[in-house]
Structure formats: structure tokens, C-alpha cells
Simulated scan of single mutants.
Amino acid sequence: MTIYLDTSDIEQIKILSDLLPISGVTTNPTIVARSGEKLNTLLPKIRDALGNNGLIFGQVISNDAGSMIEEAIKLNQIVDNFVVKIPVTLQGIKAIKSLKNEGIKTLGTAIYTPQQGIVAALAGVSFVAPYINRIDTLTGNGIETVSTISHLLAHHAQSCQVLGASFKNTKQVIDCLSMSNTSVTIPVEIAYQMMTNPCVDEAINQFQCDWITAFNSLEH
């Protein structure tokens, strides 16, 4: 199990990778577009922000297999420990198979169904990324989809891992991580929500008040 940040915010990557056990950063074309920087300049900044540790994920934007392959090869040369995200379409599967032969690590993205997940895994991806909240909103039950994919991978593609994406709350994250062989990529706001709770703050404040009442300071 690993946790990744789904962001291109360099400052937040620095802050959260220092605070939390973050294993890397994922991006997608929308996230990159919001940054105002293309991947050839953004990826090295993310690598530096991670302290040269962890995986970085970046996505191709082409629709045909040949162009996807060309993009993937170029992206893979920008930074080390890089994973190319490929949409799981017919053309995407073709690209994944070719990139597997090239030794380039891939993630199958834009997954809404178990059949996409298992086909991508058999084609050679290292990760499959079901869109949890989007599945909930559009087509069904995101966590049930993760469960089915996880079960299929355990029987037929054990080298592939579920990397849950598209979360809107921490319950979805925990439900996803409750499945076997799963990791998650979460946006910055969810990362903070994972470790903030007013009840915890209240308890800590009460501990300090009781200590000060007894000993007149916070010293041991």
C-alpha cells in the first residue's frame, strides 16, 4: 500500500512529502494545464520537490497508439522513476503492449469498469487507476469496481496494482485501501483531511490545559 499526491503544486508537494509518507506524485493533463507549465519543465520541479525520491506519473494526450508511444518515450526521458499514464482504450492497449516491450513502465488510466482493468493488466501495465468518485457519479459503485479489479488481479495479474484515483472524501480513500493490493492518489485537500480532526485538537488542548493546571507550565 502506498499513497501518492495528485497535484502539480510544487510548494504543497514539498510540504506534504515532508509531513506524510508520500510515495510520489501523479499528474494528468488537466492538473498540468492548471500549472501553466508543460511536462518537460514541470516534471524536473516535481522531482526536486520530492527530494529525488518516489515515483512520478505523467499522461500522454494523444489518441492513437503510434503518437501515444512517441509521447511516452519522450516523457520517460525527462526524469527518472517515471510512469507513463495511458488511457485504457483500444489504441491505449496497443500502446501499452508496445511500451511493455520497450521496458517503459505504464499505468492504465481512465478506468471505469473491471474489464478495462484486467485487459490493461494483461497487456502489461504496472498500475490500473479506477476513477472512484466518477464511477459513483456516472456508472455505479466505485469501491465495488475496485474490489472486482483487485480480485481479478490477484488471480490473473499479480504484478499489477490498483492505484485508486478520483476521490472526493476520505471515506472513499479508506474504503479503497481496505481492498487487497491497492494504493491511492489523493488531491492536496484530501491529504490534509486525512490527518485533521477537530476532536483530536480538542483532546490535545485539554491535555495541555490539565498539565498546566497541575504543573504551571508545559515542561516535563
Rank of each mutant, 00 (worst) to 15 (best):
I96G: 07
K97W: 04
S98F: 12
G103T: 10
G103Y: 04
K105T: 13
Y112D: 01
Y112S: 03
T113M: 09
P114E: 08
Q116F: 09
Q116A: 12
A120D: 10
A123Y: 02
A123F: 02
G124S: 04
V125F: 01
F127D: 01
I132G: 05
N133R: 01
R134H: 02
T137D: 12
T137V: 10
L138V: 10
I143G: 06
T145D: 02
V146P: 06
V146S: 05
I149F: 05
I149C: 10
H151L: 14
L153I: 09
L153F: 14
L153E: 10
L153K: 06
A154E: 15
H155P: 01
H156F: 14
A157W: 09
A157R: 06
Q158K: 15
Q158S: 14
S159H: 15
S159P: 01
S159F: 10
C160S: 13
C160W: 10
Q161S: 14
G164M: 09
F167P: 02
K168I: 13
T170R: 12
T170P: 07
K171F: 02
Q172E: 15
V173D: 09
I174K: 14
D175I: 13
L177P: 07
L177Y: 11
M179H: 11
T182K: 00
T182R: 00
I186M: 04
